[in-house]
Amino acid sequence: MSISGSGQGTTRAGRARRAGAFDIRIVIAALFGIFGLILTGMGLFGTSDADLQKSDGININLWTGIGLLLVAVLFVLWNRLRPIIVDTEAAAGGERD
């Protein structure tokens, strides 16, 4: 049983640590953030009148980019508020109670 709090604590069997950069939520947040920045930039600086006509006057790149950036922020918040705790002794092959 791990003790949560700041993300680092001890368990009955040994020491526990946060997954950190190896948490898949950080990788997904980074990808959404990169694609969101690209689409937001394209929406702000690369949208022509012909593009807006095709999409019925909606700047799809801009709104999709903003949406992706919001999802990236949500993934980072999820990671900060509910970190994955890894029992380092059990991961190293130690015995558990």
Rank of each mutant, 00 (worst) to 15 (best):
Q53T: 07
D87M: 00
L69W: 02
V76C: 03
G41D: 04
G65N: 05
A90Q: 15
M1W: 12
I84G: 03
L70T: 04
Q8V: 13
V76L: 15
L39Q: 10
R12C: 11
L52D: 00
I66E: 05
R12M: 09
F75G: 02
N59R: 11
V76F: 05
L81D: 01
A19C: 10
A13I: 00
E95K: 00
E95N: 05
A72W: 08
A91H: 11
F35K: 12
S48N: 08
A90W: 15
A92F: 12
G93F: 13
D51T: 02
I38F: 14
R18S: 13
T64Q: 11
G33K: 08
V27T: 12
I24L: 08
G36V: 06
D97F: 13
A90V: 11
N59I: 00
Q53P: 01
I34Y: 09
L69G: 05
I3H: 09
S55R: 04
T64R: 13
I66Y: 08
G94L: 11
G14K: 00
A13D: 14
A21P: 10
G33P: 07
A30K: 06
V86P: 12
D51N: 14
L70Q: 01
A90G: 04
G46H: 05
L69Q: 07
A16R: 04
V27L: 07
T47S: 08
S48K: 00
Q53K: 15
S4H: 13
R12W: 10
G36H: 06
L37G: 07
A16V: 15
I38N: 13
G94C: 08
M1G: 14
A19T: 13
F22R: 04
D23F: 03
A19H: 08
G93I: 12
M1L: 12
R25Y: 06
E89S: 04
E89C: 00
L74D: 11
R82P: 00
R25V: 09
A50I: 00
V71A: 10
S6T: 14
I85C: 06
T40E: 01
N61R: 09
I60Q: 09
A29Y: 01
A29N: 03
V27W: 02
L44N: 06
A72F: 04
V86F: 13
G41Y: 11
A50R: 12
I60L: 03
V27E: 08
I38Q: 13
D49F: 06
W78K: 05
F32G: 03
R17I: 12
G20H: 13
S48E: 10
L68V: 00
G7F: 05
L74K: 00
K54L: 00
I38H: 13
T10G: 11
L52S: 02
E95S: 06
D56R: 14
G46A: 10
L70W: 01
S4V: 07
T88A: 11
N79V: 10
G14N: 09
G9P: 09
G9H: 09
I85H: 12
T40D: 06
T40Q: 10
G5E: 01
